[in-house]
Simulated assay, not measured.
Amino acid sequence: MGVSIAVFASGSGSNFQSLVEVARQEHWPEQISLLICDRPGAKVLKRAQALDVESYALAPKSFAAKAKYEQAVLEILKQFQIRWIVLAGYMRLIGPTLLTAYSNRIVNIHPSLLPAFPGKNAIEQAFSYPVKVSGVTIHFVDEGMDTGPIIAQTPIEIAPEDTIETFAKKVHQVEHKLYPRVVYDLITGKISCPSLD
């Protein structure tokens, strides 16, 4: 059955929407059936509703510990028979509970050429540094901050005439093309984690 991909997101959800729309248009063998959000009220929840994707909003601070929050998330993932976790603007480090259950099956997109500019505000960091080229990275998730094995990278020039807004738009355009393509290659076995080879 095509119930196998969950997207985790914290913000507006433009990458989430792009992934869902491409998966449906291209008739992926495994569809995105679930959204997990750690910020009740985030815009991504409205996108999920409009796209008719089941969503759960769980506030981590309402749990006694990170492990308890992740255990609650894990129970939902099991209920939906999720096989892959795709992070799309999810602003939390993944802990041992989910890393163990989904070893080599959690991927993330980051708006820089890692290992440069990890963590928050990577677009702003690259623009103000300044560097002439930044980009987008897709990587497997480990216990670190944007430190997992890199799957794909696309460089993006920061032109002299760019503003932070125009550069951010370039980054998002690349993200919306690159992420669906890489996720498709993962779920169809064209790409595998180095440790699985």
Rank of each mutant, 00 (worst) to 15 (best):
S4N: 13
I5A: 02
V7N: 13
F8Y: 15
A9R: 04
A9D: 01
G11S: 14
G13H: 06
N15K: 03
F16H: 10
V20E: 11
A23E: 04
R24D: 03
Q31E: 13
L34I: 06
L35P: 00
I36P: 00
C37H: 11
C37W: 02
P40N: 03
K43L: 09
Q49T: 14
Q49H: 12
D52K: 13
V53C: 05
V53E: 14
V53Q: 14
E54F: 03
A57M: 13
A59K: 14
F63K: 11
A64G: 02
K66E: 10
Y69H: 07
V73P: 00
V73F: 09
Q81P: 06
V86G: 02
L87M: 14
L98P: 00
L98R: 04
L98A: 05
S103Y: 09
S112C: 05
S112I: 02
L113K: 00
E124M: 04
Q125S: 03
F127L: 06
P130A: 07
V133N: 13
S134I: 02
V141W: 10
I150V: 13
I150N: 06
A152N: 08
Q153E: 14
E157W: 03
I158D: 01
I158N: 01
I158W: 06
A159F: 05
P160S: 09
I164N: 08
T166L: 03
E175W: 02
K177T: 10
K177P: 01
L178E: 01
L178G: 09
L178K: 01
P180N: 12
V182E: 05
L186K: 05
T188Y: 07
I191R: 09
